[in-house]
């Protein structure tokens, strides 16, 4: 059993105990006087306070350890790795997303592009793209073209041989009218000149 599993089991037990205490308190099984008596005993006894301090520190350390293990695990999952004779090369999925964003910036048909890359051992690399397009674009033609570009560029730049699935979701089409409307809104209106006492 790994340390991560032991901490998880420990947390399950602690959470279950805490839940049981809360439930027994809500159903009046645990009396308030009894609880107050126990708390005051702990509060007044120096030895009990030392034990309580130690357990408090222990709980904080366990939480920090759990946070560190979880974040390291997540980071490991979010990378593509390959080995060279001099060492390992790791590519974060964020870098792959960055590349797709840069591809989108080069295409005039794309108004906005939000990529999300998932890498699994079973399915390979899955790229989900949310698109906002300009109205003059032929959607089926362009999306097919984009799928091909993204797939080829990832394979070419990252040197990945794994299967790459590119899913595109066209979320919005920006029309020419909408664009000009926004431009008009952006131009500030000229202030009206008022002459308080016009000369006759």
């Amino acid at each position: 059993m790994k340390i991560y599993d032991i901490i998880i089991i420990f947390y399950i037990i602690v959470s279950a105990l805490l839940g049981a205490v809360i439930l027994s308190f809500s159903f009046n099984i645990l009396e308030i006087n009894d609880l107050l008596f126990r708390i005051s005993t702990v509060y007044s006894s120096p030895n009990a306070r030392i034990v309580l301090t130690a357990s408090g520190i222990f709980f904080i350390l366990i939480s920090l350890l759990l946070a560190q293990i979880t974040s390291a695990k997540r980071e490991r999952e979010k990378t593509i790795a390959f080995n060279n004779p001099s060492g390992q090369v790791t590519i974060t999925l964020f870098a792959v997303e960055d590349l797709i964003r840069k591809i989108g910036q080069e295409l005039p048909q794309v108004k906005e592009l939000k990529p999300n890359v998932i890498a699994t051992k079973k399915r390979g690399i899955q790229v989900n793209i949310r698109l906002v397009l300009r109205s003059e674009t032929n959607i089926p033609e362009f999306t097919a073209q984009l799928q091909e570009i993204v797939k080829n560029r990832i394979q070419e730049i990252f040197g990945i041989d794994e299967q790459i699935i590119v899913r595109i979701h066209v979320a919005k089409i920006i029309t020419q009218v909408e664009k000009t409307k926004k431009k008009i809104e952006a131009v500030p209106e000229e202030p009206e000149v008022k002459i308080p006492y016009p000369r006759i």
């Binding site: 001099s86 090369v89 790791t90 974060t92 964020f94 960055d98 590349l99």
Partner: peptide, 12 residues
């Protein structure tokens, strides 16, 4: 012994 490279971002 080893030089491990992590590609964190792509930038222009």
């Amino acid at each position: 012994k080893e030089v491990n490279v992590k590609i964190q971002e792509i930038a222009k």
